[in-house]
Structure formats: structure tokens, C-alpha cells
């Protein structure tokens, strides 16, 4: 299974490679001049305020959003939608109450939902789904309708879906949202294991770095049309964040946790008409 297990092995071809990438909507600049290589087994955290372009960045990696300039390659090829090598946990959105699917059906869709026709190999699928449910601790609610599951329970199913295909690149958009502490650790541990055991590159969007601090190799911090890349120690510093936000910010370390103080309410943008992303969860 595990082909290349040493994280960030220097010779390995990068899973993600962005060159001079820029993205703007109208006169609203999200980022510009972004050069980024993500190696197999590397765990990249993406941080930044609401509307800074974290979700949009993942969409470019999925081939759902064209760059305004520059290139983005996945495993040496231009990013295309529907790549089987990419697994995603989308930003949270809950299911309709009356959705006629059980937890296990949702996970099964994550495995073969793109195929035509109806499912024929039901037994094999059932086994695979059971494994995945076990992995994310969802066995106990496998038969319950997805619509009645709590936000965190649904989120764990998302994780199972994303891991289903043993992806080379795992894109996670705030996957820990609405998880309790125990499950935050369990799910981030699972995602990390996909990186270190299976050599997947992980892009992990989050507002809260502490639960994953032990796994993070590098941080990409987006804010106000600018960005900063580096190890957590390099990026999570008072000077760097103050410069990104254009406001005085203090970063402290205590007990291995990073505490950021003085975050401005809003970030100034090229275009002040910033609006919340429609898909954004509560």
C-alpha cells in the first residue's frame, strides 16, 4: 500500500504544484504570485479570515475554479474535475431532514456515486462501507437517516467518503467543524494517517490550528489579498500576522498551543463589498 512513506521526501514529484498562481473576482484579489509545491505525505494547513479565499483555493485544486493567472498541476497534470486521486471533505452543509438515505448510503455514494446505472455488487460494497464507517466511528449510526444526524455525525461521514478511494491528495475544508474534542482528534488523526501511511498530500483548511498543530508541516496563511507560507513556527508570529492583517496582532505560545490575540473584526479588502460565502456553515 504505502509506496513512499517519508514525508516531504526531496526527490518525490510534488502532488500539488502551483506556479505564480493568482485569482481575482472582478477587482477583488484573493491572492497573487502564489508558488506552492506540496510533496507526498505533506500536511499543509490553510488559515485565514472568512472570505480570504481558502475554499476557493481548494476549488482550484479540484479543477472547479479557473485561476486568473499562473498554473496549477496535480501530480504533474493540470487540475481537472473529478480526478479519482483527489478526496474532499467539503465545507459543512447539512442534509435535508427527509433525505431518503441512511448514513451507509451516503458513504457508498462517495465510493461509486459517479458510476452509471444502479449498484450491482452490493455485498462487496457493504463490506467496504462497513470498514469506512468503523474507521470514523460511525458504525453505531450506520442505518440512521442522514437527515436526522447531528452536524458532527454528518461530518464524520464526510471524512469516510473522502478516504474511500485512498486519495493521493486530500482536500479538507474545515473538517473539524462541529466535532467534539474526542472526534476532532480522531478525525485529524485519520487524515494525518492518510498522509504518513499512504503518502497522500493533505490540504487542511481550518480556523483553529491547535487541534492539528502536531501534524502540520507547513502553514499557508491567507488574508486581505496577501499570503504567507512557512512552518507553523515561521508563520504564526506576531510580526507576520500583524503585517498580513495590517493591524497589531500578538501571538503567544503556551503549553504547546498557539494563542492569537487582537484579530481585527474585519479585514480590509481591495473591494469592501465582501459577502459571506453562500455555502458557509453556521
Amino acid at each position: 500500500m504505502a509506496t513512499d512513506t517519508s514525508p516531504a521526501a526531496p526527490a518525490a514529484e510534488p502532488v500539488v504544484s502551483m506556479r505564480n498562481a493568482s485569482l481575482r473576482f472582478g477587482d477583488r484579489l484573493l491572492w497573487d504570485g502564489l508558488d506552492l509545491d506540496i510533496a507526498p505525505g505533506e500536511f499543509l494547513a490553510v488559515l485565514g479570515p472568512n472570505g480570504s479565499g481558502k475554499t476557493t483555493m481548494l476549488r482550484t485544486l479540484m479543477g472547479l475554479q479557473e485561476l486568473s493567472g499562473g498554473t496549477v498541476k496535480i501530480a504533474g497534470r493540470p487540475a481537472t474535475r473529478g480526478s479519482r486521486q483527489v478526496g474532499t471533505i467539503p465545507q459543512q452543509r447539512s442534509f435535508d431532514d427527509n433525505t431518503p438515505l441512511r448514513a451507509r448510503d451516503l458513504v457508498a455514494l462517495g465510493i461509486d456515486g459517479h458510476k452509471w446505472g444502479i449498484r450491482l455488487k452490493r455485498k462487496a460494497m457493504r463490506r467496504r462501507v462497513d470498514e469506512l464507517l468503523e474507521l470514523v466511528g460511525a458504525t453505531s449510526y450506520a442505518e440512521r437517516p442522514v437527515g436526522v444526524l447531528s452536524g458532527g455525525e454528518q461530518q464524520r461521514l464526510r471524512a469516510a467518503q473522502a478516504l474511500a478511494d485512498d486519495p493521493r491528495l486530500l482536500l479538507c475544508d474545515e473538517p473539524l467543524l462541529s466535532l467534539d474534542l474526542h472526534h476532532q482528534q480522531a478525525i485529524s488523526g485519520l487524515i494525518h494517517r492518510q498522509a504518513c501511511d499512504h503518502g497522500a498530500a493533505v490540504v487542511f483548511v481550518t480556523h483553529e490550528i491547535n487541534p492539528i498543530l502536531q501534524y502540520v508541516d507547513r502553514v499557508l496563511y491567507l488574508a486581505g489579498g496577501r499570503f504567507h507560507i512557512g512552518t507553523p513556527g515561521e508563520v504564526m508570529r506576531s510580526e507576520v500576522l500583524s503585517e498580513l492583517y495590517g493591524a497589531p496582532i500578538e501571538v503567544f505560545e503556551s503549553n504547546g498551543r498557539i494563542v492569537v490575540v487582537g484579530m481585527p473584526e474585519t479585514v480590509t479588502h481591495a473591494n469592501p463589498q465582501q459577502r459571506a460565502h453562500p455555502l458557509q456553515g453556521a
Binding site: 479540484m62 479543477g63 472547479l64 481537472t80 474535475r81 473529478g82 480526478s83 483527489v86 474532499t88 467539503p90 465545507q91 452543509r93 442534509f95 435535508d96 433525505t99 438515505l101 451516503l106 455514494l109 462517495g110 461509486d112 456515486g113 459517479h114 458510476k115 452509471w116 446505472g117 444502479i118 449498484r119 442522514v146 464526510r158 467518503q161 482536500l171 455555502l279
Partner: peptide, 23 residues
Amino acid sequence: LVAMWRPLTFISVDPAVAAARGI
């Protein structure tokens, strides 16, 4: 309907993941 069954279910209940899957 039978031919479209799975992908149609997917885009109906879970458009974000279905889009990422290239449906």
C-alpha cells in the same frame, strides 16, 4: 432513470461532493 440513478442521486443530495467527483 436506471442509467442515471446513482449520479443523479449524488448530485441531488450532495452537490458539493458530487461536483468534486466530476459528475
